[in-house]
């Protein structure tokens, strides 16, 4: 084989599926059969993985650090919830609508947010979340205000599979949405567009010198990411049949960031690991004392960034067990 074919092959093979990538899906399906009492927690984990995946596009691949991603999650949750309370109970169209509304907000907000950088960018992300919080809190009659939006009734999926009280349909529904979204994100990050995002993360000036409108690319990924976050929020609202102001909180933005960083950003699977680890730990520890949980979570992530930069998947790479994908 020529040197050219070899070098090109190395580059092209990175797009191909590896066997280890089947692992999370096998684990998710095994969980369905083996842990029937934990399907509600499992559904929440799947939702957070999807949310972390949306953030990974923005933060891990493009290098945009934001603390306002809950805005899009919450908007998706309220959109799906309000559709249902308003009489539109079909779930899949609800998902699409929620993602579209969140993406539209992403376009408007991103247009302002992405002109700034650093502290101002962080601040605007938080401000857009608080803005929605104020709206949701004050439109009491519509959103239920501080009590949250209850009575979200969802019609059977595809007209056949009802959302039962054991959460079986919810779990498989969340898993299916995550899988489809994951296929989409995986295709995007390895396509030329996704590679250009990685280039922007590494050096925007170089990408600009290649003729790339860095602002346009960043705005495009912001819209995509916002849409996916809205999708995650919609799945959350439909499966829990509830949306609340917590979906628009700083805590949620911060938590999803910590999940992604714990797992390892820019590697597609960081959210899978981070969300699973943190939510299982939280389920075990936080029931006793939620405040205590915040303390240990904070301490844990500080130690992590001091000693294990790059997250758990980064640790794997540093031990020589596999390189960074992005």
């Amino acid at each position: 084989m020529s040197a050219r074919a070899a070098a090109v092959g190395v580059l092209m093979r990175r797009r191909s599926w590896r066997w280890v990538e089947a692992l999370p899906w096998v684990a998710a399906i095994a969980g369905f059969f083996l842990l029937p009492n934990y399907l509600q927690l499992g559904t929440q984990i799947l939702v957070m993985i999807l949310f972390a995946l949306s953030l990974d596009l923005l933060l891990g691949y493009t290098g945009i650090v934001t603390l306002g991603h809950a805005a899009f999650f919450g908007l998706g949750a309220y959109t799906a919830g309000l559709l249902a309370t308003g009489g539109w109970h079909e779930p899949l169209s609800g998902l699409v609508a929620a993602a579209a509304v969140a993406a539209a907000l992403g376009l408007v907000a991103g247009f302002v947010i992405l002109r700034t950088s650093g502290l101002a960018l962080l601040m605007l992300g938080m401000a857009i979340t608080l803005l929605l919080y104020e709206v949701a809190n004050n439109l009491n009659g519509l959103t239920g205000g501080a009590d949250g939006l209850s009575g979200v009734e969802i019609a059977p999926l595809l007209g056949r599979f009802g959302f039962d009280m054991y959460g079986r349909t919810s779990y498989l529904y969340a898993l299916a949405v995550l899988f489809v979204a994951f296929l989409l994100v995986r295709a995007i990050v390895w396509a030329p567009f996704g590679r250009s995002l990685v280039g922007i993360r590494q050096n925007p000036a170089r990408m600009q010198a290649m003729g790339v409108s860095v602002f346009a690319r960043r705005l495009a990924v912001f819209v995509l990411s916002a849409g996916l976050a809205g999708l995650a929020g919609a799945v959350s609202a439909q499966t829990s049949q509830f949306a609340s102001l917590d979906n628009l909180s700083f805590d949620l933005s911060g938590t999803v960031l910590l999940m992604l960083v714990l797992g390892g950003p820019g590697r597609l699977y960081g959210g899978f690991i981070g969300a699973s680890v943190l939510m299982i730990a939280q389920d075990g520890l936080a029931k006793e004392n939620p405040v205590f949980w915040l303390f240990w979570l904070g301490l844990f992530v500080i130690l992590l960034v001091v000693f294990v930069p790059g997250g758990l998947l980064g640790l794997r790479a540093r031990l020589g067990l596999g390189g960074r994908d992005g």
């Binding site: 295709a187 396509a191 030329p192 567009f193 250009s196 290649m210 790339v212």
Partner: peptide, 17 residues
């Protein structure tokens, strides 16, 4: 990447293999 951007393919969201 530079070659792809020259051809305007960097905007391709999917595929492009």
């Amino acid at each position: 990447l530079a070659v792809l951007e020259r051809g305007g393919q960097g905007r391709a969201l999917l595929g492009g293999r």
